[in-house]
Amino acid sequence: MVTAPATTTGMFDLHDVSVTYGSETAVAGVNMHIPPQAVTALIGPSGCGKSTLLRCLNRMNDELGNVKVGGRILLDGVEVNDRSVDPVELRMRVGQVFQKPNPFPFSIYDNVAYGPRTHGVRSRAALDGLVEDSLKRAALWNEVKDSLKKHAFELSGGQQQRLCIARALATAPEVLLMDEPASALDPISTQQIEDTIAELKRTVTIVIVTHNMQQAARISDQTAFMLRESMERPAQLVEVGDTRLMFTNPSDKRTESYITGRFG
């Protein structure tokens, strides 16, 4: 297994973060630390703002227009919403994997090479190296090394999702955001994605949104529970802490009833 150079960067600090769509505040008052080279899981019922909060971290909310992010979001101490921060650079450092596998209608190779090419890598040798390295880190290399020219749509759903992970890794991000990356996959593919995450967290900070509490318990080091108690009020962060502690001894009643399956 190829390992990227060990880094100690890729750490987020959120201070009083809020997200407002038009006149509606969807998320408010989020304070949390996201430690580097660890898996942080965001859990909570549908519509509790997990994905919205996730998209703040790579400023994908910018693309929606009409969205205002308040508070402070620091990546290694630098405010990501600062005017001096270019979203292009930010997204090189903070990659994202989406809910549904969304490979481009290109070959496997061109999918992985898209990010590096976007950022100016032209040399064939450098691209070959990045493609191989990224596919290895996403645990897909052995299955596709002889068919890199094959169209990405010929892969199975699980393979496509690992291709999307490889594509995100190719720009050497320090953080990987994953928005329910296994929810559209079968159990075996889910298992493979979880194994990949376990391997990746040695080099990359991972923030994963998941509906699946067993999954959060299995793969994450830290868990954050979010909840929107009524449509009149914005969603908030109920509790954040060590995953094992939270699942064995939650400090908030609402967390306890959610993880024991009383609602959601």
């Binding site: 790579n58 994908m60 693309e63 979203p87 292009v88 650079e89 930010l90 997204r91 090189m92 990659g95 994202q96 989406f98 549904k100 969304n102 490979p103 481009f104 209608p105 898209y114 990010g115 976007t118 950022h119 999307c164 594509r167 995100a168 720009t171």
Partner: peptide, 22 residues
């Protein structure tokens, strides 16, 4: 699909590059 645009933007591609290349 919107997904493809999102994937490209999330890789740090500009709007224009996303349109032209994807």
């Amino acid at each position: 699909p919107k997904d493809l645009r999102q994937a490209s933007l999330a890789l740090g591609a500009s709007r224009l590059r996303t349109i032209v290349r994807v």
